[in-house]
Design a protein around this nucleic acid. Structure first.
Lengths: 243, 243
DNA sequence: CGGCAAATTGACACATCTCAAAGCCTGTGG
DNA sequence: CCACAGGCTTTGAGATGTGTCAATTTGCCG
């Protein structure tokens, strides 16, 4: 199996990749696996031996709350092209699990491959590093959104971000996309109760910002919704730049 | 000027550093600069040419809200030993500024030094990468805390984290530390109004968890306060581990 | 001693949570 | 083809946490 072309697009959007680096990427051995909605893709573990890239569908980093077995917090959502738990390669392990949101397909990569890359391909190493830093920038933006936006605007921000990230790798266009998330999952992501999420969805619908039936979302007024969310994609670092 | 020994302690706590790597670290040229409370240490900029390490005092990553000039959100707090804006080396720039909290001293490092390290010292590179990933793990934990804790517990979590991080580099002990933060700054960090922060501080005091006068904090009941905050330092990744 | 910024307190408004119930899809089995 | 079951979505009403505004007190520094 070969590495997902989505991830190569993710990188090429942000920097030039030399022929040798590209060849090394394409030579990475990966294992393709499919998951049903809600399945655990990567469990909490102290020592990880492989990491996974998102190929189809979406996944989430899920933090179980101690002493409250029915509650969890989702701190990241991943779309095709994301190297989901690349950080598990450098950290001592993951303090969260990765779960499928809707049906999902991923490619697992052995850490042996990553060690080889970091020993011999410095520029490629910086690009992998970059991918984890963009995740961190997204975390920061979520903190900003949580502290500064009310529920409807907060939800709007998430929608703007996901659409932009899908669009960046060619997985969405024309202001339409598939969002395989239950309202309960949106609640875990944004830190509200499911009931409040429902009201926020209705609010965005009532304002004419979007159509949303089942898992299909169509944004009707991008200018309006991104203004409400104060969405500025700079943090996604999507410009080409020498790294 | 030589690199801060605090940062070396930060790394050595988490992995063995070979003699060559250590020598390379100590050979890094740095520029020592002091800042007054509230001063901008690193402005928002599209292309950074150097990064800074915290030497004394504290600093914060401050996000200015567009259209609301008097509001900001703080997404990270840095203590001695932290490589504050190392991520600016790999990203196209910073989407936030770094400001001094109280009087602060930092060491600036040219990115030329970091390029050299990433080209020639793979293990040291992974350790620098690790430092940025621990910052990201802290971001995630802040997201979890924001979504799952009420104000007093949320404030308690911040105090537990800062004390633990200070202790990890030998900058605090005996459950006492200096916290050079105004209540207004705590509000920007935790996403509450300054008035509500005040109530949370009083609550923690009233419960007998701590003494807090001016910038001096003394924790009287570590077990109690860390239970309230559901504080588990695993995310700080403070165990030795081959990276 | 005076002045100013920060910390503290009170009262009320608003956002969000919880509990409870009703409506709506979708898959399944008769 | 219909009836049912189960999970998800939607709605309502009251409780709680937090924000805002206004005023007072404290503490520091000139």
């Amino acid at each position: 199996m070969a590495i997902t072309e989505y991830f190569i697009r993710y990188l090429q959007r942000r920097d030039e990749i030399g022929d040798k680096d590209l060849a090394r990427l394409r030579a990475m051995k990966t294992e393709h696996v499919s998951f049903a909605p809600g399945e655990v893709i990567v469990p909490v573990e102290r020592i990880a031996r492989r990491s996974c890239m998102m190929l189809q569908g979406m996944s989430a980093r899920s933090h179980q709350l101690v002493g409250r077995p029915n509650e969890r917090v989702i701190t990241a959502v991943h779309v095709p092209g994301d190297f989901v738990d690349l950080h598990g390669f450098v950290l001592a392990g993951l303090e969260h699990s990765v779960v499928a949101l809707g049906p999902a397909e991923v490619e697992f990569v052995d850490h042996d491959e990553l060690i080889d890359i970091t020993e011999t391909y410095p520029h490629l190493t910086r690009l992998l590093w970059m991918a984890t830093l963009i995740d961190a920038a997204v975390h920061r933006q979520w903190l900003v959104a949580a502290a500064s936006l009310r529920s409807s605007a907060h939800l709007a921000h998430l929608l703007c971000e996901i659409y932009t990230r899908l669009g960046a790798v060619g997985a969405a266009a024309d202001l339409q996309f598939t969002l395989p998330l239950l309202q309960r999952e949106l609640a875990d992501i944004l830190g509200y109760s499911p009931i409040h999420i429902n009201r926020a969805v209705r609010d965005l619908r009532d304002r004419g910002f979007l159509r949303w039936t089942g898992t299909e979302v169509e944004i009707l007024d991008w200018a309006g919704i991104s203004r409400l969310a104060r969405f500025d994609p700079t943090y996604l670092d999507m410009e080409k730049h020498r790294r």
